[in-house]
Simulated assay, not measured.
Amino acid sequence: MVKKTLKDIDVKGKTVLVRVDYNVPMQDGKITDENRIIQSLETLNYLMSQDAKIVLFAHLGKIKEEADKAKNDLAPVAKCLGEILNKEILFSTETRGKELEMAVKNLKPQEILMVQNTRYEDLDGKKESKNDPELGKYWASLGDVFVNDAFGTAHRAHASNVGIASNLDSAVGFLVEKELKYIGGAVDQPQRPFVAILGGAKVSDKIKVIENLLPKADHVIIGGGMAYTFLKAQGKEVGKSLLEEDRIQLAKELLEKAGDKLVLPVDIRVADDFSNDANTQVVSVDEIPVDWEGLDCGPASLEKFAAILKDAKTVVWNGPMGVFEMPTFAKGTNGVCEILAGLDDATTIVGGGDSAAAVAQLGYEDKFTHISTGGGASLAYLEGSPLPGIEAIADK
């Protein structure tokens, strides 16, 4: 996808509509992780340096009923952005109408206006989430050009990305450009050896990713809950571990097709209860007790993974190796994180979501080449699925 980037369009002195991903975690009205806001600053600072008048569109949470509006109000996000930039951020409490139109019209160069949560429009027939053409056209009428810098919503066709882009000259912002460069480059033109590490609960969540990456990667390491479906497909006892019975045949077919390329754990940390305080033991994958469940991979598995990864030049990691939310079962996920953090000569990419959370918990953000801001979007990209929010942007 060779799309226009921010420096391919003239933004000097223009009113620039920017879709950002400010769907940040909130607790008691306070933002608990500012990373998505910080990731947008490169684009915003560039636009300000060009004397652009900036109008920000973003969503926060889901709006299913009137009561959801108060807890998903973007005003605290605007305040946080202002504190980070040390600058007043203007705020429109409306998503359409005279107040918004006048606020945009009165903008001066370098000023930033944030529009209220785009999903407020979902109370009236899901107009944002279903990409209502009239809404996209209306929002587009407010500006001169459109910049999509929200990779986290790129796998969705919404009025605030696809709708606006369909009606204006458009480009991707610096953050989206970076996401496409690293994730797209890793999948389509990797330096080899190329290793993919896929974790998470279910095979069904990652089927397309496995199928897309198997022909491209030198190794695909499988961990997390979905490993037990593959172990069962090999005829092993998995006890009370997470198992997708209806995916066993598919797992068999993938194992046959992949051969040595698909790498499974060799030992498992099992527990007698789904609890951080459960009794645990580490057993071979051939010796999982009938009444116990696997909740993490064991140390021998990490050694096996490390041996494969030590020569890797490109690594993509998506999904935890166990129930990492419980410290007792976070050793596999943390271990993979530490192995990747120690690879000095490799391009290491984390595909958002739980993997990115694990990297942040361990304080290893600076040790990775790229940490994606979009879990669902990066997963779709790894699957080879279309990203409507990017496809709608003008080609170079």
Rank of each mutant, 00 (worst) to 15 (best):
N131S: 07
A103M: 15
A140V: 11
N106A: 14
K105F: 07
E121Y: 04
Y138I: 07
A103R: 11
A140P: 10
V145L: 12
P109L: 04
L107K: 05
E134H: 00
D122W: 05
F151E: 13
Y138M: 04
N106I: 00
D122I: 08
Q110E: 15
N148V: 12
G152L: 09
E121D: 15
G136I: 03
F151H: 14
K137Q: 15
D132I: 10
H155F: 07
D144P: 03
D122R: 03
D122T: 06
A103S: 15
L123A: 14
G152T: 09
L123M: 14
I112L: 06
M114R: 03
G143M: 11
N117Y: 09
D144E: 14
L123P: 11
K127N: 10
L135V: 14
A140W: 10
A150C: 13
K126L: 13
E128T: 13
W139V: 04
G125Q: 02
E111F: 02
V115P: 01
L113M: 08
K126I: 00
V115G: 03
G136N: 03
A103I: 01
P109M: 11
R119T: 05
K137C: 05
P133H: 03
N131Q: 05
K126N: 15
K108F: 00
V145M: 08
V104A: 09
K127M: 14
A157E: 12
G125S: 07
H158F: 13
E128V: 13
I112Y: 10
A140N: 09
T118H: 00
T118W: 01
T118R: 02
S141T: 10
G125W: 08
G152C: 08
D149L: 14
R156G: 12
Q110V: 03
V115L: 04
K130P: 00
P109Q: 04
K127C: 10
N106T: 13
T153Q: 04
F151Y: 15
Y138A: 06
D132M: 02
L135R: 01
G125F: 07
D132V: 07
N117C: 13
I112F: 09
N131T: 09
P109D: 05
V145I: 15
D132R: 04
Q116A: 15
E111T: 07
E121F: 13
E121A: 14
D124L: 09
M114N: 12
P109K: 10
T153W: 07
A157F: 03
N148M: 11
V104R: 08
K137S: 14
E128A: 06
N131F: 07
S141Q: 02
K137I: 04
G152Y: 08
V104C: 12
K108W: 00
D132A: 04
F146S: 10
V104P: 01
A140D: 06
A150K: 12
Y120E: 13
N131Y: 08
W139Y: 01
V145N: 05
K130I: 00
E111A: 07
P133G: 06
E111R: 01
A154I: 14
E121W: 02
L142T: 06
Q110A: 14
F146N: 10
E128P: 02
S129A: 15
H155I: 13
V145W: 05
S129V: 09
A103W: 01
E134F: 00
G125I: 08
